[in-house]
Design a protein around this nucleic acid. Structure first.
Lengths: 333, 333
DNA sequence: CTGAAAGCGCTTACAG
DNA sequence: CTGAAAGCGCTTACAG
């Protein structure tokens, strides 16, 4: 059916070895005239190399597995896009799997990717994830965690400097005149979100006797419901740092539904800073995770065996939800 | 290095054929005792089948290519998630490629996927896309377009009934008392967005002498800027149907920045209805594309060679941006 | 610089 | 029910 290397060799009157050398520009040299004949034959026949056959023999599939803790989360989704793009610039195809926050599915995906002979494995994990990368190491496949690394895993991690970014957020709200700065996070303090929570605690402890810590599930719905409840009870803080975009968007949604003005009645800063956060109403002030840099470092780590980078800087991007006056709806950056 | 079928056969004292029959439950029967020995040997050695080798021999890779017109668009991203999930339930892995609205990249991705011997190709195209699926057909690989099919392509398409859904949106705004209903769409009228625009025209033509058609790029930034400009010129309509979520979110963002109340001053209905639309401020009334059904039909089409489905129903989901009073921030449905 | 041949790890007729 | 062997389409020593 399909045209094979052997067909091209026959047509060009040469061996399959030579055709392979021409197609791959090596590893042996080929005479210019022979090369021309091979190229012509390949073009005439419409030859397309079978990557599966190549993968089996050369032990390089050209494919990398990307395991996502949850694809519905815009922050993870944005990270995934950047990783896919970084992989493409390394000539790799991306096998994508969405675990939907299910650790067992995360593990299964990683194993199926390994069975598919991926050249590397990138895992965008959230807390609660199993250590899937260690099995990759056992199979001799390079792996990297992005955003979060499960306990006891030794695979390299690429992540931002959560401590510095939360400190910047606290300072910024204080500059706006807020003396009490609450923090909204998820049910527990694992992983990056835990670091953010601890950084907040550290930053407010010298100034506030009873820092206000709020918790709800990591979802828009939960955060919206929480804000509406607190509004009804007149228990809302005046300024809050929110651990994740998902919750921050929920906060804005709940505030809108409760008729609460942001930032006048409630100032908000979020800690993910996915592109979506620029077009909320009002636009969300964030400390933006450096998604592109994270993706690039992760992929470099996979293939250039570079050293793990230091924690990456997450810049504060002032928009309207903190009280800054900025041109609305500009480019997200 | 890795354990192979031959290793298992040796350990179990049988042939590779039998091991293969056991691993795949066929196609030949195996005596129960033999099967036990094989299973035990495989477990002891930690055997994991090499999918690449299987793919080469059996001509089935277990992988499907998914070409996305643009992954940054939450509507396309949501569609991609559902397709990935539908593929997983068919036991297929997903090779994901993001064309970033570049037709040439879309073509390249499709070809690389075909070279990788995918078992099928799903293309979530936008207007301007080249016909990449026809090349799949030439290679004997089943393909399907989702959302939009380029001109002259003969590959099956799975899409929603845009006409009916826009008619429902017009009726709904009329029910809210609006007599003039504007429409905001992109620079031209190709594909599904073109159908939506024509359906609007049809629906308002009998009632409005000069229906108001607005255009801007398919981005949040462009729609936000347009709304702010119109607000400054006091040229804003009172009710608008927006062709895409991206633009609708931009409209809300621009309205917020201009201090314009939605829905009181401007009622909005959007036509994609990705999950994100439920948590805008205010929550967005949408005619929701049936993403899950679209994904399921598309995947069934690929593997069960089912007949192309009729245009799918897109239900109107009343939220707050049209003027309805609904519990805010409920589940997105 | 080129060709004949082995081999990647499987599946699958074929023969028994 | 089982085994010996061919072959999927490539790459890569090896010999010339």
């Amino acid at each position: 059916m399909a045209v094979t290397l052997a067909d091209v060799a026959r047509r060009a009157g040469t061996s399959t070895a030579v055709v392979s050398y021409v197609m791959n520009d090596g590893p042996r040299p080929v005479a210019a005239a022979t090369r021309e004949r091979v190229l012509a034959a390949a073009a005439e026949l419409g030859y397309r190399p079978n990557r599966i056959a190549r993968a089996l023999r050369a032990r390089v599939s050209g494919v990398v597995g990307l395991v996502l803790a949850d694809a519905s989360n815009p922050y993870f989704a944005a990270l995934a896009r950047h990783i896919e793009q970084a992989l493409e610039s390394h000539g790799k195809l991306t096998l994508l799997g969405n675990a939907g926050f299910d650790p067992e599915r995360q593990r299964q995906l990683a194993e199926r990717f390994l069975d598919a002979q991926v050249d590397g494995l990138a895992v965008v994990s959230s807390d609660g994830g199993l250590d899937v990368a260690t099995r990759a190491a056992a199979a001799g496949v390079p792996a990297v965690y992005v955003h979060h690394r499960p306990d006891r895993a030794r695979t390299p991690l690429v992540a931002a400097d959560n401590e510095a970014s939360v400190h910047a957020a606290v300072e910024h709200l204080r500059w706006h005149g807020h003396r009490r700065i609450a923090f909204l996070t998820g049910p527990d303090d694992v992983g990056p979100v835990g670091e953010r929570r601890r950084a907040w605690q550290e930053a407010v402890a010298p100034h506030e006797r009873e820092p206000r810590l709020l918790r709800c599930d990591f979802s828009r719905a939960a955060a919206a419901a929480l804000v509406q409840r607190l509004a009804a009870e007149d228990m809302l803080p005046r300024a809050v740092i929110v651990a994740t975009d998902e919750q921050a968007i929920g906060v804005l949604s709940g505030a809108s539904a409760a008729g609460l003005a942001v930032p006048d009645r409630l100032a908000v800063i979020s800690c993910d800073g996915a592109p979506e956060s620029a077009y909320t109403a009002p636009s969300l002030t964030v400390v933006a995770q450096p998604l592109e840099a994270m993706a690039r470092y992760a992929v470099d780590l996979l293939f250039d065996r570079a050293a793990p980078p230091p924690a990456l800087h997450a810049p504060l991007i002032p928009r309207r939800s903190c009280g800054c006056v900025v041109p609305a709806a500009g480019p997200p950056g």
